[in-house]
Design a protein around this nucleic acid. Structure first.
Lengths: 235, 235
DNA sequence: ACCTGAACACCGTTCAAGT
DNA sequence: ACCTGAACACCGTTCAAGT
């Protein structure tokens, strides 16, 4: 215990520790500040040491995604496919809300990760058990898209922010700048309607949970109708 | 015409020319090779010259997005809201297929661009004219999400490739590596079903156009039902 | 054998020096 | 006043030199 001082390392580095530190760093500082070099600093390690545990940054991101996907609840036992799918998607959504960088990381990736493949495979299995033909299950997976993993591609919500930034600024309440409201009256109308329709929502913006479930149920109900009608693709 | 040789410039640089060159570069080489420096080379210009026409790379990307969105057909005159929305979304999809980098560029952006706001504003207007309440129109916009702009968030399609890469490699036809097929049997099943169900599709993979329209009509029909029922949010 | 500093080939952007 | 080379503060990753 003499010469070891100065650089005493609490835990030896491991792939798991690297991935967890990376996820934590992305969670609190945003994905844009996740660099190999920053991550090394965070771990009290020289940058090159990371390359002993991940081949490159792409593998790092893949591993991070799988850490996140691993947090999603397994399917609950229930004979009703719709309840199983719905509950798991909402669990996935919960998880992704804790890791706001994950949806974009998943989308920017060209290959699916093992955990995602496993997740999707299970979801298809639930559909098959629920009476879906292979054909219909296939189209359903495409139709659900990223919503299967608990996120939707919102085009104009303010909920997606870079980093947490310490809750410093109180989120500019300008729901719609008056200049823009004049140019885009229809958007202004639905934005305004949303802000005072829902008393439960504090500032501007919408009840994201409601919007998500609205779209989810719209899809699930439509899909259930197709299944009941014994839908088959005309080919 | 004596001293001007050597550095004769065909057209003077302009914001428009910068944006068009950037879109062309991203189209053919992929968004990852669109750097200020590469773009400058492409235009035969020193990198700093670009900063006279765009404030920074973010503004460049915003401008590129608006060039692309500007290529979408305006709404066709038609009393049936569903036909109008459907046709315009399919036009948007056509445009985005020509600019495969655009969906991710749009999603990674935190603020909507003017052209996107204008596009969405028009779409809300069509819904309102079609008899939708402000409330329902609002939820519909959220439910459609990025599909309103003609793209879906597919989780596991191979259609998204980095660059064109000159049609050199004939796209590895391994629909599903046998090792993966054993671990993910349900995914393998739907992948296999897709490849020989559709004779129109050459290699592996699905008929993306069919999948897109399937999901689109599922949503539009569900939405139409809600409108006809006079759906109102319970609040 | 393992680890790591320096180096390489890039970024976006600032800034001061040139015309 | 305008333009631009060099510089700054970063990247991810290679590689050879150190232990």
């Amino acid at each position: 215990m003499a010469e070891q001082t100065g650089t005493l390392r609490r835990t030896p580095l491991s792939k798991d520790r690297v991935l967890r530190a990376a996820v934590a760093l992305a969670d609190e500082s945003g994905i844009e500040s996740l660099s190999m070099r920053n991550l090394a600093v965070e771990l009290g390690v020289v940058p090159m040491a990371l390359y002993k545990h991940v081949a490159n940054k792409d593998e790092l991101l893949g591993g991070m995604i799988d850490v996140v996907v691993g947090e999603i609840d397994p399917p609950v036992p229930d004979p009703d496919w719709k309840r199983v799918i719905r509950a798991r998607i909402l669990s996935a959504r919960d998880v992704l809300l804790r890791h706001p960088w994950a949806p974009l990381a998943i989308e920017s990736r060209n290959d699916a990760t093992p955990a995602i493949l496993d997740y999707l495979n299970t979801m298809v299995g639930i559909l098959r058990d629920g009476g879906f033909s292979t054909d219909l299950a296939h189209h359903v997976m495409h139709a659900m898209g990223s919503r299967m993993l608990g996120f939707s591609q919102e085009l104009f919500d303010a909920s997606r922010r870079a980093g947490r930034s310490g809750a410093a600024e109180p989120e500019p309440p300008a729901a719609f700048p008056p200049e823009a409201a004049a140019r885009f009256p229809h958007l202004a109308a639905i934005a305004t309607a949303a802000s005072h329709d829902d008393a439960s929502v504090v500032g501007d913006g919408c009840d994201d949970q409601f919007e998500f479930e609205f779209a989810l149920d719209l899809l699930l109900n439509g899909i259930d109708d197709l299944r009941q009608q014994g839908w088959r693709s005309a080919h």
